[in-house]
Amino acid sequence: MRKLRILIVDDSAVMRKIIERALRQAGLDLGEVREASNGAEALVEVQKGSLDIILSDINMPVMNGLEFLKTLPTIPAAKGVPVIMITTEGSEARVVEALSAGAKGYLRKPFTPEQVKERVGPLLAGVS
């Protein structure tokens, strides 16, 4: 059993802390937690490899979450790493666009640890 290696992408440092805390409260055994404040920074982290899951905000400066998601397939190290998109907006169109671009799920802010577990847990079955 090993600890999970995750990447949290959000332009808000506070939100990155909240997401990490929610993951821990959801009972996930976190090991390495990497952070990025936009899609471009996240791509650099992804290239380093060794990730079990990525959680990414959609609305971010420099490179938004959807652009990041669409660029991921060009990075070999991203292959097989599930991405959960996190959105503040209740826009169905945005969610559909994210899922079409390869996201494995989405989480709407605000969220509870239970909702995090519901969305993230199934994607990590067999990892830790």
Partner: peptide, 26 residues
């Protein structure tokens, strides 16, 4: 700022006529 963003997003998500027809700024 994040609280404000989430309040605005949560508010519009609760109103069907706004959810898909109203964008939020940072």
């Amino acid at each position: 700022g994040e609280l404000c963003n989430m309040v605005a997003g949560n508010f519009k998500a609760k109103i069907t006529s706004l959810a898909d027809h109203c964008m939020l700024s940072v």
